[in-house]
Design a protein around this nucleic acid. Structure first.
Lengths: 349, 349
DNA sequence: GGATACTTTGCAATCGATTGCGCGATTTCC
DNA sequence: GGAAATCGCGCAATCGATTGCAAAGTATCC
């Protein structure tokens, strides 16, 4: 009797009957349509709440041709096998999810190893979602350009590229790469390597910043020290150890991600190279776990959660037909290893 | 002219017209309904492919009252603030996403800090999705029981609990906790702590395994050494350092997650405690990054991607009205620190 | 050949919400 | 007091696919 929830009302029609109005009026009342009188609106809404009625979203989506769904597509490079275990993705996803929830949108997660991005045209993302967020460009830049022909709008998280027809949101990769490299230079390092796949636009920009920082000090980047390290741990480890065997003449390394950095550090340790004494390492992304390595990892912070918000605002802007422009977010060097500075060869402790 | 994609066909009606059949026949042909002759079916499907027609999923979902969407809800404890930065979640999500994609389902991600789980009843997950996967029970066990009243079926990843009315999938938490503890005991440790929030059912089971392992060796677990460490790094660090100040009489610690373990190790290091010489640490989950800490972290592996598959199969089983039972997956100790054994007080290096 | 059975296809209702248009009632204005 | 403007609401079409049922066409049997 004192049941808090009354018999639930299934359809708009039932609610209308209950309120003694037509379906049309009930619909308008729920949507705060000004055509409806204040009194009627209040009554209908009260009844809706009382009977815990909520509109059938399927029907609504069908009628309005609008699902309130935004798809998130992770562009995973199969070759370099940057897979989801990079915490960066999760934090980004969290940021996007939160921002979408605030705007009353839902998140459709599409996680396909994307070799053929164009195949997405016939996939769910383009069919069901009102808009799409691509995380990363991988090496699929041209395919993305082609997707702009479709009528589902999208934005991309990534790095600068040449001919671009889509909306891009990204960090200041050039600045980040520059700051990271500069940090090592300031610590007295001279032979600085770069670990990362420069075919990826974001990483290419970081690498450009790296090269620029070297140039400012009159240093020429050694091509042999730019290594295409895959994103995931096991591979990174292999490549790193191989490099150490063949050309151990470097004393610092700028990594394209924290995961790479941690893999490198771990590998160095296994091979008896001391970090940061022999080789100093800088990461990228400032994932939560990075601060807990020992020594704590110096890295470039991107405000990932905020990035998620910007992505959401951009894509919803497109959905609503607003003018949307590219966005570049700040990146910031986070220095954690105060003892990296070269003091003349003596290792502390 | 040699355009590979002909003018796309928007609706079933158009396709039917093109094929010279009725909408009904076209629909049945596309769905391989045996009522339709082989010839007609082939013709319709060929035309559909040729004009890259794909059914309007909104309309279909509306008509069939079935969206082919499975919602994934992360149960985040606000108090203990276990947030998404734990890579465990991401790997699980990847496993679920893959398994769903194979079954032609999509993933609706719902990421709400769930204080009031019952509020989900009116949320999107219950409205749009055909089924739901909850990741973790948090401390919301009773609320979950109540949700079984709703008509959207769901399964839960988590640990054993008392009165349970829902389908549960989980790892062998008791066995894992036992193995982890046993490992430390075998290495000669005697004062072993447990870090984790035992109000969480999974962790409670791990703790039970921990206690059981101690008991087998005639040791009584010291309540003071069971510490409710929050899941995220900063808090874990605080709590850990406090513990060290007040009661530093332990030589091993079983952690409820790798993230906690890494935080603990980092804290120990900062406080001058040597790992594993002074205190040996075992983690849980075997997240990718764990293997790269130094020393590499011994941990309990759960096959998370497989877990994702099992969750998907279970929830789809429920959706289809099959009988579904609880599942317990294997857990396995991964030993990475060969040098942990106590050798009489002499620290190597 | 005619009746019966089976196969193949089409008709039309249906799912639930939204919205253009029109109608009656009320207010406003002169 | 009457015409015009305004307000509040309902009628009915509509979105696109699915499906029970009936009808038309074809094969089978005696």
């Amino acid at each position: 009797m004192a049941k808090e929830r009354k018999k639930t009302v299934a359809s708009l029609q039932e609610l209308a009957d209950l309120a003694g109005v037509s379906r049309a009026t009930a619909s308008r009342a729920l949507n705060d349509n000004p055509m409806i009188s204040e009194k009627t609106r209040a009554r209908v809404q009260a009844l809706a709440a009382e009977h815990s009625f909520s509109i059938n979203r399927q029907a609504r989506a069908f009628r309005l041709r609008r699902s309130n769904l935004i798809a998130v597509v992770f562009m995973l490079d199969v070759k370099s096998d940057q897979h989801m275990s990079d915490p960066f993705f999760l934090e980004m996803l969290g940021g996007i999810a939160d921002a979408l929830a605030e705007r009353d949108y839902d998140l459709l997660l599409t996680h396909a190893p994307v070799t053929d991005v164009l195949g997405l045209r016939n996939g769910r993302a383009f069919q069901q979602a009102d808009g799409i967020i691509f995380i990363g460009q991988g090496e699929q830049h041209d395919a993305l350009n082609e997707l702009t022909e479709e009528d589902t709008p999208f934005v991309v998280w990534g790095g600068p590229v040449g001919e671009k027809r889509y909306i891009l949101v990204g960090g200041d990769n050039h600045g980040g790469g520059h700051a990271a490299t500069r940090h090592l230079l300031d610590a007295g390092r001279r032979r600085i390597a770069f670990f990362g796949n420069t075919r990826n636009p974001e990483i290419a920009a970081r690498h450009a910043g790296y090269a620029a920082a070297l140039a400012e000090r009159g240093l020429e980047p050694d091509p042999e020290l730019t290594v295409d390290v895959p994103f995931d741990m096991p591979h990174a480890r292999d490549v790193t150890s191989r490099l150490l065997e063949t050309a151990r003449q470097f004393d610092g390394v700028v990594c394209a991600s924290d995961v790479i950095a941690l893999a490198a550090i771990s590998t160095f340790a296994a091979l008896g190279v001391r970090v940061p004494d022999d080789i100093a390492v800088v990461g990228y992304d400032d994932v939560a776990l990075a601060s807990y390595s020992s020594p704590a990892l110096t890295t470039v912070r991107q405000n990932i959660r905020w990035a998620g918000r910007v992505l959401v605002e951009s894509v919803l802007g497109l959905v609503n037909g607003d003018d949307v422009t590219d966005t570049q977010l700040q990146s910031e060097l986070v220095v954690r290893d105060s003892s990296m500075r070269r003091t003349g060869g003596s290792a502390p402790e």
